[in-house]
Amino acid sequence: MENAVKLENITKKFSSTKFSLIDISFEIKKGSLTIVGGANGSGKSVLMMLISGLMKPTEGKLTVSSKPGLVFQDAATQILGDTPREDVSVGPKNLRFCKKDIPALVEDSLKSVRLLEKADIPAEYLSGGEKRRLAVASILAMKRDIIIFDEPYANLDYPAVCDVNRLLEQLKSEGKTVILLTHELEKCLALADHFLILQKGSLVFDGSPEEAVKIPLEQWAIRNPLTKYENVKDLIWK
């Protein structure tokens, strides 16, 4: 299977003493769903910006098969149009797609993320989960095959989390390469083919979810999601 993303000995430093990523190497296969876990400050966001081309590595080689699309933690900041239809059309227009093709492309993208019935309402009225779906529609309209989600469950209630997971499963079934940066493993690890863990800028785990949950993830400041809850006294993280 071909690679969508390949990092070879990638280092990113912001000064002579401050390193964000240190000698990172891994591969992400096309059509896979990869979860990148790690505590705050582990380097997840910098990794996302490197893969997306928003930053350049200090050292090493980074190969990406196509330009990725990003879904930020606060998807509302990505909305550029007054309505979902207007918003999704921005990318194709900026990329100078054929004008006569854009309306159908926008409609297909909104339909794909189940927002077509809300295409012409004010985008500000959308829920948090719907705004994430709108961000994905905008990416699909630009014909991007790699989609990166940064903490997609932030500030979402249970139904919205389920809605995001349905979208992730759908994108994977359509052959998109999905990269998910999150520390909320209990909400999504079953979706993943591939699991990476960063700690203080280093890659400390590269394998499958099944392999990961058999080891003490707490050593890397991650709570093992297989912890069982049997009564109220168990409902505390410590």
Rank of each mutant, 00 (worst) to 15 (best):
I102A: 10
P84M: 10
G37F: 09
R132A: 06
E124D: 14
V164I: 15
D74G: 01
F26Y: 13
S15V: 11
S52I: 01
A137S: 13
E151L: 00
I28F: 00
E210L: 10
R96H: 13
G81M: 07
A119I: 11
S45I: 04
L95Y: 12
I102L: 09
Q73I: 01
E124V: 15
Q199V: 05
S20R: 00
L171R: 10
K118R: 14
Q78E: 12
I24G: 01
P225W: 01
W237D: 02
V113C: 05
S20P: 01
R223S: 11
L167S: 07
T63K: 14
N9L: 06
C98M: 06
T58L: 08
A137N: 03
S52K: 00
T83S: 14
S42T: 10
L180G: 00
F205E: 04
G129I: 11
K143P: 06
F26R: 04
K200M: 00
T77N: 10
L235N: 01
L33D: 00
T77L: 14
D234M: 03
I146M: 02
N3Q: 12
R114I: 12
P92H: 05
L54A: 13
I79R: 02
N231W: 08
K172H: 10
M48Y: 03
I179F: 04
F14Q: 02
S25W: 08
P225G: 01
A190N: 11
V136F: 02
E27I: 12
L171C: 11
G207Y: 05
R114G: 07
K13A: 06
P159E: 12
F72A: 00
R133N: 12
T177R: 07
G207M: 01
L226F: 11
I24R: 01
G175M: 09
G41I: 09
